[in-house]
Amino acid sequence: MVDNRPDIRPSIRTARARVSGLGAAHHGTREWWMHRVTAVANVPLVLAFVVIVALMAGRPYPEAVALVSHPLVAILLILGVLSVTNHMRMGLQIVIEDYVHDKGLRIAAVIANNFYCVVVAVACLYAIVRVSLRALA
């Protein structure tokens, strides 16, 4: 739904200033939109992830390594980790901003959220790449 109604309120701001300002947060609806984009990407990637985990369960170590080092599996896992960790970073930031009212605590919580998501992402990516490349060595 696109709101095309013209803004008829009188203003001394120029049209240029109105569009370049992008509102109080100065980045418009980019974060909201990226949350949706990652949500759409998550659907097929999460379904693939569920299938991969179901195939992995109960397998001995060499077979588990062979499965994760398959290029298709490794690429799907890497894409999934990138999309999911970004999606959850934005999602939890919304939760924090809704419920943590103290400004200092809120800033600390948002920073901690970013750190957690990056640590999870890097740990997963490092592990996938390491398992995949060891098959070549």
């Binding site: 999911v84 959850m88 999602g91 999870v120 740990a123 997963c124 490092y126 592990a127 996938i128 398992v131």
Partner: peptide
Amino acid sequence: GVALYGGTALLALWLVALAAGPGAYG
């Protein structure tokens, strides 16, 4: 959503254990 956020730590644990070797994966 918040539960899944915490649950990704389990995914990281599982993948890192796989990368670390059979001793950690077992």
